[in-house]
């Protein structure tokens, strides 16, 4: 029984991009406004979930040929290694540094190691969520 999902698919295509943008925005702005790595990751993940919802497993897999376990592992690795980096620099573990740069387009921008950390968090969240959902639905088939 094939269900016609044309409306859904059409609208999803637009919506997914809105969500993805928004997710990245949340992730980046987290330090000053609500948001941050975790929420950003969740939103990104929900975009992917929306893709799964509107189409099917195989299609998404084809268009996103990633093993999300590795994505998650990479995330954890990033998150921990920022902490680990500080060991190399001889400061207490997890020391974060930040600096302000005057970049041409963006104006005064803050660059911090927290961002890398948050990126790790976000990646993990995306990876884990997709892994979980993917494993369940794949298994149930």
């Amino acid at each position: 029984m094939k269900i016609n999902d044309v409306i859904l698919r059409t609208i999803s295509r637009i919506v997914v991009f809105i969500i993805l943008t928004f997710g990245v925005y949340l992730f980046l702005s987290g330090h000053n406004t609500p948001g941050g790595g975790f929420i950003g990751g969740l939103v990104l993940a929900s975009a992917i979930i929306l893709l799964y919802l509107s189409t099917d497993l195989e299609t998404v897999q084809k268009s996103l040929p990633l093993d999300f376990k590795y994505v998650a592992a990479l995330g954890v690795f990033l998150a921990t290694s920022t902490g680990f980096g500080s060991i190399i620099f001889g400061v207490p573990f997890m020391s974060q540094t930040f600096a302000y740069f005057d970049l041409p387009i963006f104006g005064v921008t803050e660059l911090t190691t927290v961002t890398i950390f948050e990126a790790g968090v976000a990646l993990t969240v995306v990876g884990v969520l997709v892994t979980i959902i993917f494993s369940i639905s794949e298994d149930g088939g």
Binding site: I49, L53, L57, E58, S137
Partner: peptide, 24 residues
């Protein structure tokens, strides 16, 4: 966003029993 996604998910569930499906 979420209201949208969860509505889709629920409607999928009601409709088909599973919310994500295989092509096959």
């Amino acid at each position: 966003i979420l209201a949208f996604i969860s509505t889709i998910a629920i409607s999928r569930y009601i409709e088909r029993g599973a919310i994500i499906e295989h092509k096959s």
